[in-house]
């Protein structure tokens, strides 16, 4: 217990009732936050008959993985009935290069903007930073035209380009703020020892950058995986990412509505980011904070 908590505890007095109320409220809220996930999961293991009969809050009476298999392999999205697996891989193929490229560029940019400052470095950073926050609607039409002219419409490569371009601002922000606190004396010392621009980056900064690289990769991964607007605007067909496919699956009005399959697909779409969140929640949080509370 920290000294500060002690102080508050003393002031509150050792009221048992208070504690019970506080714990009660916290647990009720926890249940409310968990409810949608719970409903998604239970629904995805129920048969359609059970769903129609039933209690949305009940556990599956006769659990089945059939909806998951259908969602993955044979659910109909648009005119094809191959499930979401192809779109899942589309997302992977989009996310991996986009995250790697934007992180690498962000690291170099952050290095230059903190350790090799030049006249106007603040303006450059300010322009890159504001770019993170624009509503993407204001670049949607030109982007669609340019992707078309580059022959990148409806391709994963096109989406990679888009996500790199609109991700640089954030990755630069992460690395800039991290390297800002990195002692400049180390850079000076390495310069005097004869190290050049890239040697200093590779030998001095990069080995100390693991935490921010993790933060940046997780942030970018989550953002790009979860993106919908760019996906639906620039890659709506066979090359659509997972989020777009999920929406198409859920919104399609042909045939019998298979809620269990929808939910299984939704869980599959959520799984990669949820796993990252469970495994590295601390870094996930740091990324969100850094993205929210600037410099």
């Amino acid at each position: 217990m920290s000294a500060r908590e002690m102080a508050i505890a003393t002031a509150a007095g050792p009221s048992r009732l208070n504690r019970v109320v506080i714990y009660g409220l916290l647990l009720i809220f926890a249940a409310m936050y968990l409810l949608p996930l719970f409903v998604m999961l239970t629904t995805s293991f129920k048969s359609l008959d059970e769903i129609r009969g039933g209690d949305i809050l009940a556990l599956p009476a006769d659990p089945t993985i059939q909806p998951w298999l259908r969602a993955w392999g044979s659910a109909c999205i648009g005119v094809t009935c191959d499930g979401i697996k192809g779109y899942f891989w589309n997302s992977i193929k989009m996310v991996v290069p986009a995250v790697l490229i934007s992180t690498a560029l962000g690291a170099l940019n952050g290095y230059v903007l903190t350790k090799w400052r030049f006249r106007g470095h603040k303006l450059v950073f300010g322009l890159m930073l504001f770019a993170c926050f624009i509503p993407f609607q204001s670049v949607l039409i030109p982007m669609a035209r340019v992707l078309g002219q580059l022959g990148l419409s409806n391709t994963t490569a096109g989406l990679v380009l888009v996500h790199v371009v609109y991700g640089i601002g954030f990755t630069t922000l992460f690395f800039r703020n991290y390297y800002e606190a990195f002692p400049t004396e180390l850079i000076h010392s390495a310069q005097m020892d004869g190290a050049g621009f890239f040697t200093i980056f590779r030998r001095i900064l990069l080995p100390s950058s693991a935490p921010i690289i993790v933060v940046c990769v997780i942030y970018q991964f989550t953002n790009i995986w979860n993106d919908f607007l760019f996906g639906v605007s620039f890659a709506s067909g066979e090359s659509a990412p997972m989020t777009v496919a999920l929406n198409n699956l859920v919104a399609s009005s042909t045939g019998v509505k298979e809620y269990n399959v929808d939910m299984a697909a939704a869980v599959i779409a959520a799984l990669p980011t949820l796993i990252v969140y469970v495994v590295a929640g601390r870094y996930f949080m740091r990324g969100l904070m850094a993205g929210a509370v600037k410099g």
Binding site: F29, A30, Y33, L35, P36, L37, V39, M40, T43, I56, T222, W225, N226, D227, F228, T243, L246, N247, V250, Y259, D262, M263, A266, A269, A270, T273, L274, V276, Y277, G281, F284, M285, L288
Partner: peptide
């Protein structure tokens, strides 16, 4: 309390639409 932030809005929308 924080995990919903890791989800895509599309997943959130889908879940709540069902609920």
């Amino acid at each position: 309390y924080l995990y919903p932030m890791a989800l895509s809005f599309v997943v959130t929308g889908t879940a709540w639409k069902w609920f």
